[in-house]
Design a protein around this nucleic acid. Sequence first.
DNA 1: GATGAATGAGAATTCATTCAT
DNA 2: AATGAATGAATTCTCATTCAT
Lengths: 202, 202, 202, 202
Amino acid sequence: MAATPRKQPTQARSKATVTAVLDATARVLVLEGYAKTTTNHVAKVAGVSVGSLYQYFPNKEALVMAVAERHAQAMVALLAETMSDLGDQPIRVAVRTYVDAVVAAHLIDPALHHALVMLVLQIGLEQFREIDEAALALIEVYLDERRDQILPKDRKTAAWVLMTTVESLIHMAAIERHELLRSGRLNEEICAVILRYLGVES
Amino acid sequence: MAATPRKQPTQARSKATVTAVLDATARVLVLEGYAKTTTNHVAKVAGVSVGSLYQYFPNKEALVMAVAERHAQAMVALLAETMSDLGDQPIRVAVRTYVDAVVAAHLIDPALHHALVMLVLQIGLEQFREIDEAALALIEVYLDERRDQILPKDRKTAAWVLMTTVESLIHMAAIERHELLRSGRLNEEICAVILRYLGVES
Amino acid sequence: MAATPRKQPTQARSKATVTAVLDATARVLVLEGYAKTTTNHVAKVAGVSVGSLYQYFPNKEALVMAVAERHAQAMVALLAETMSDLGDQPIRVAVRTYVDAVVAAHLIDPALHHALVMLVLQIGLEQFREIDEAALALIEVYLDERRDQILPKDRKTAAWVLMTTVESLIHMAAIERHELLRSGRLNEEICAVILRYLGVES
Amino acid sequence: MAATPRKQPTQARSKATVTAVLDATARVLVLEGYAKTTTNHVAKVAGVSVGSLYQYFPNKEALVMAVAERHAQAMVALLAETMSDLGDQPIRVAVRTYVDAVVAAHLIDPALHHALVMLVLQIGLEQFREIDEAALALIEVYLDERRDQILPKDRKTAAWVLMTTVESLIHMAAIERHELLRSGRLNEEICAVILRYLGVES
DNA sequence: GATGAATGAGAATTCATTCAT
DNA sequence: AATGAATGAATTCTCATTCAT
């Protein structure tokens, strides 16, 4: 243990700078939107010079990508943790766990999430789409394995409908129905929508 | 008399210019997004000088607002037509009619609709939100009148969930599941989601 | 008399248009200043189309020149009338008459006068300078004829000093000492300055 | 210590840029007038990019204000120096000192002064008016203290007449009677006007 | 003659990015 | 590594002037 004392002061400082810049970018992105997010402003908010910012990020897009990456990883980590052994659970429990996990993931930083979703749809941040594709694959497998317990026959479509419904309702609630999201009543309602869609008594 | 000869040549030219500019704006908005939609580019695409553009629209925002206005009116017109006497219909029919209407409205110009929804969420084009609020009110009344035929007890929340689910599924399909949207299979699936959520046998 | 009935309706209308445009220009010039005086605005205020404006004035500068011309003529007419036989008068009377005349000329339209003086000094409206040159010549002759009754030896310089002092005091009073100008007290004071400068007991 | 070595290279560069921009603005203002003074032209004349100009001045108006400020301070410094203990002097000396000081102040940069006076009268640069108000107050006090040695009874008006006469004559001479101004003959003449007006033998 | 829609060069301002210190 | 001054292409918007109707 006693080892690694006085670790690379340089790298530590670098890391602090990078973190400060990413935090600042997230903050500015939320407050101003992508178009009004200027690198000079971000640098100022981060307490760093523009030059330093460009030392770590080749351009504005990379900067925003890194913020998205970080946020996506945090969301994935939370989702993975909660849903690790979802495959063993009965549908009712699995759906509830999934919905709760997605809600929890959205509550990490709803404002940033909204800002980034906007970018996904505008600029097309691919990492974000990838998360969804991965989740979609998992849901499809899960439904396939229980094909005799559910109503929908086209499971590919059902998986997409299910995921899109869950995410859209949570996302829209985060924007315009805060109380529904925070009170936990939304979770109940979404579970009802999904379970009835699948034909599982709730 | 002689059948309105020599109609206002002046006004006709103006109207053509305005239409050309609005069309060009819609096209550029779809292809480039709001940030990269420059007034000079729009003017060029419209085959008109920037000056003419500014003769009719005081600034870029007003230009985009006008496009949104025009598109919103087209959608509302279509929705209104299809749903006029929806109140008399049994739930199953009403839901089908509603879903078909929303799908049809989204098919007027899916790409433009997407671009404008982005703006609603970014800049906050209010006309668009108003449409949703109006629809929401109608749905609430409809559910209230049939409260003993449906499962959800909190009809305010149910109305929001219903509308948000329908619109989100259609909107997302327009973006990433074109075939589902155009084939009509999405309509079936959404009806299933909604009818089961309401507890009406489909 | 009975002659000239139904005179050129065309020319009459033209004249009315020209007058309306000149009036509008003067008004806009006073309210907005030269830079913000746009031909379209002038046309609108005049109740005329830009096209008509350009029918009578080749460009903006000519328009403003015409306004200056008209104002200059009004001032000159008033000055000429009052000062016609100034040459016969004793100095005390002549100075008083001159000062009164200049004050009266400035009171025709002080705001427009100010706006135009600005332009003389900026753009260099020559007609205005010419008026001054003419007045200067008259004063020089007057002083030369009375060289033995006055103190200043260099009469060319004295004439310029005299004219400049009178005009500057009146012009500045029109801008920032309204009450002094309108009450007539300024006239007294200016006469005192001039008469004492010339060494004539007042 | 070693004699301020390695001084702020950063600040030095900045300062040079600001100075270059102000100098260029003054030059362009004189040559072209306010309306035709474009920021791009100023930047080019300053040998600097427009961006740099906007780094230090938020807009064109601020730029011109800064030029006015700098010129006003130079004039005030010169006036203050020459007139510091004017209060102790007899009228004849005081007037001569005052006139000389105003002439000297106008000779710092007559063309720029003219351009700026235009702006005072057009846009209304307030710093400039303030200088005059301050001078006016001083003159009033001076006349009040010598009320029994001078002719004018209304000393407030006399002070205004005196100051306006001196400044107008000098200003107009700077525009159209260069030789009078530079030769020093104007100073003599203005002193004569003022001293006789006050009733002090010259 | 009158109209006013159309034109487009030109002006102010912004901001991603570079590079000398 | 950090700094922040400098750059200039790109963008929004204005307005004198023209010309088809």
